[in-house]
Every structure is written in C-alpha cells, then in structure tokens.
C-alpha cells in the first residue's frame, strides 16, 4: 500500500492497514517488563513507572513477576558474575517475542565496577540486547527514551524476509546457553553468537 494512496483514502474516511502494522502496533503498545531489579538503576526504573514519569503512557506499566508473562527484560544495574547465570536463565524462560534493555553503565559495560573481578563487563556477552542506555544511573527520561527506541525498532520490523523478529524465524536460535561458575571466571566467558567481536581494549577481562 502506497503511503500517498493511504492518506488520500484516509481523507475520504477509509482507513486501511496491514497485518504487519497491526501486529507491530500491538507488540509495541504492550511491552510488559519483567519485575526484576538488579541494583541502583532499579530505583530509577521504579521511578519511571510511578506517577511523575508514568510509563503507563507507553503501555509498559504492567511489571510481571514471572518471566513467562514478560516481554521485556530491563537489566537495571550491575550484573555480578554470581548473578549472570540467573539473568540468562530468566531470559531463557521468557516467551518470544522478548526484548532486552541494558540500563546504565554497569549493564552495558560493567561501568565503574568494570575492573572488579566479580563484575560482568556487559550483559550483551550472553543475551542479545536491543537498547543500551548510558548513564550512572540513567534518569527516568533516558529509560523512556529507551522504550521509545525499542518501540521504533519493533515498528520497523517486517514479519517476513530478512530482519524479521527472531520468533518468526524458524531457524533462529531460541536458547541462550547459561554460563556456569568456572574456576576463575564464568564459562564460557561470552556467547559468541550474540557477542561475536570482543573489543581488544588492553584491559584484562
């Protein structure tokens, strides 16, 4: 359907849409996050859901206490190496389609604790992250920005062909291996499928 024709029809009171548009509208308007806070960023996440910032405007105020009912995982805080297997396991238990927002410096890179022996240097080593938000902690506006970015991303997805969401791709991997505590580090130290190019920064990790 051409955009111009659609507008012309709309002027005549005829509204047309596609299954894809409806489907993506439904997906992006009801992103239910998982009730899951890791550290100080969780406080900002809680503030975002409250009356002042009102996440309900985006249809995302329904925080679910069970991964089986959640669409979105907000990694809100430092992921320690002790917590990482649980995070990945919870992500695995979420039903498709599922999304991840890595909130704050810790979740995207380890943040101020990057040098710590017990801190994971970014959750994107194990699970695919859709939106990264910098900040320590990011303000609620930043989280709302992340929501809007995620909504744009969902809106832009086609149901068929290249770039279709993972759950509509029968070939796509649905399970992400849960790391186990090794002698010195988590094993494996990253999932090569979601984190193929480790940056050589010179900092030992």
């Amino acid at each position: 359907m051409e955009e111009g024709l659609k507008i012309e029809l709309g002027k005549q009171g005829v509204f047309v849409t596609t299954i894809e548009e409806l489907y993506n509208w439904g997906r992006r308007s009801s992103i239910w996050p998982m009730q899951f806070g890791l550290a100080c960023c969780a406080i900002e996440m809680i503030a975002t859901t409250m009356a002042r910032y009102d996440l309900a405007r985006f249809g995302a105020e329904v925080f679910r206490p069970s991964p089986r009912q959640a669409d979105l995982m907000i990694i809100s805080g430092t992921v320690t190496k002790k917590m990482a297997p649980q995070v990945v396991r919870l992500y695995n238990q979420m039903a498709e389609p599922k999304y991840v927002i890595a909130m704050g410096a810790c979740a995207i890179s380890g943040g101020p604790f990057k040098q710590g022996y017990n801190v994971l240097k970014g959750i994107d080593r194990y699970i695919p992250v859709d939106v990264h938000i910098p900040g320590c902690p990011p303000r609620p506006e930043a989280l709302i920005q992340a929501f809007m970015t995620l909504q744009k991303k969902i809106d832009g997805q086609n149901l068929t062909g290249e770039g279709r969401p993972r759950h509509l791709d029968a070939e796509a991997q649905g399970e992400f291996p849960v790391p186990v505590q090794g002698e010195h580090d988590l094993e494996p130290s990253s999932n090569r499928l979601v984190w193929p190019l480790p940056m050589k920064t010179g900092i030992r990790d």
């Binding site: 919870l90 649905g174 399970e175």
Partner: peptide, 15 residues
C-alpha cells in the same frame, strides 16, 4: 510460533 527449550519448559520459573 513457540521456541521451546529445556529451561523454558522447566516446571518452576526461577533464576
């Protein structure tokens, strides 16, 4: 379409 796996199908959802 579902993408089942052993962890998702476990009886109790927990980390």
């Amino acid at each position: 379409p579902p993408k089942p796996n052993a962890i998702k199908n476990s009886i109790y959802e927990c980390g």
